[in-house]
């Protein structure tokens, strides 16, 4: 039996089994997120999609939609929280936007723009991380990894290769590669893999190309992620009906 709940005063229909995120996206309503990708099982690790459901905070990507639920998303308090989470992501890695090929189509950047983050403001960690260019077609820059787990999920669930995993705990968490040497070039990874296409930031990139789209024409240059991001195709579908 389908039902209806409320997000920021707007009614949102849902089908049984849908999460708050699924139903919101299907209705063309954007809830900021980074580790979530509608093509994969939700992970609820970035916490950006935290909303208040009947006054209690919960991740929209893993909480089932419920009849009559009152969901708050774009409140000052929740947007403040999101900015803090984004600032922590920025200072924990080395995100040099002016020198990154992903700039302009980077989801971390786009969500930060959407949440009105002007600067990371916290003390920067400047962690020492490697760049692994051992693969003939792909490069992995660990400086930019935000541990969203999407490559792990794609490689495991779609490619059936288990090339990636997150190792360590807390601030020591890091992405590892399954190969005898631990290098990408010695793994079963292929540029055609789903895992090669899901990185929301500039951590896993295709080699031999870059800066191919002029500034001004990149994905998030003109319109925010809430319009042109993964929610876009649902907005179109809704209009087509």
């Amino acid at each position: 039996m389908s039902g209806q709940f409320i997000i920021d005063h707007k009614p949102v229909p849902f089908e049984p089994g849908q999460t708050i995120m699924d139903a919101a996206m299907a209705a063309g309503i954007y809830i900021p997120h980074l580790c979530h990708n509608p093509e994969f099982h939700p992970h609820a690790s970035c916490k950006l999609c935290t909303v208040k459901i009947n006054g209690r905070p919960a991740s929209a990507c893993t909480t089932q939609a419920a009849e009559g639920a009152v969901v708050e998303s774009e409140t000052d308090e929740l947007m403040d929280d999101r900015r803090i989470l984004l600032k922590m992501l920025f200072v924990e890695g080395n995100h040099v936007c002016p020198a990154c090929e992903k700039s302009g189509r980077c989801q971390l950047q786009a969500v930060a723009y959407y949440c009105n983050m002007l600067a990371p403001e916290f003390t920067h960690f400047y962690p020492q991380r490697d760049v692994d260019a051992s693969h003939p077609d792909m490069v992995i820059d660990f400086n930019r990894c935000i541990l969203c787990n999407l490559c792990v999920r794609a490689s495991r669930d779609v490619d059936g290769k288990d090339v990636f995993a997150i190792s360590g705990r807390g601030i020591g968490s890091h992405l590892i590669i399954s190969s005898p040497s631990g290098r990408l070039g010695d793994s079963a990874f292929d540029a055609e893999d789903k895992a090669a296409q899901v990185c929301p930031v500039g951590a896993i990139m295709l080699k031999h190309q870059g800066y191919d789209v002029p500034i001004g024409q990149r994905l998030y240059d003109q319109e925010p992620v809430s319009v042109v991001g993964d929610v876009a195709k649902y907005v179109v579908k809704k209009h087509d009906q």
Partner: peptide
């Protein structure tokens, strides 16, 4: 006022922090 990438997060010169 902190103006631009370098004053905000170190920018390109901060790549030496590696």
């Amino acid at each position: 006022v902190s103006l631009g990438a370098c004053s905000i997060n170190g920018g390109i010169p901060a790549m030496r922090n590696q």
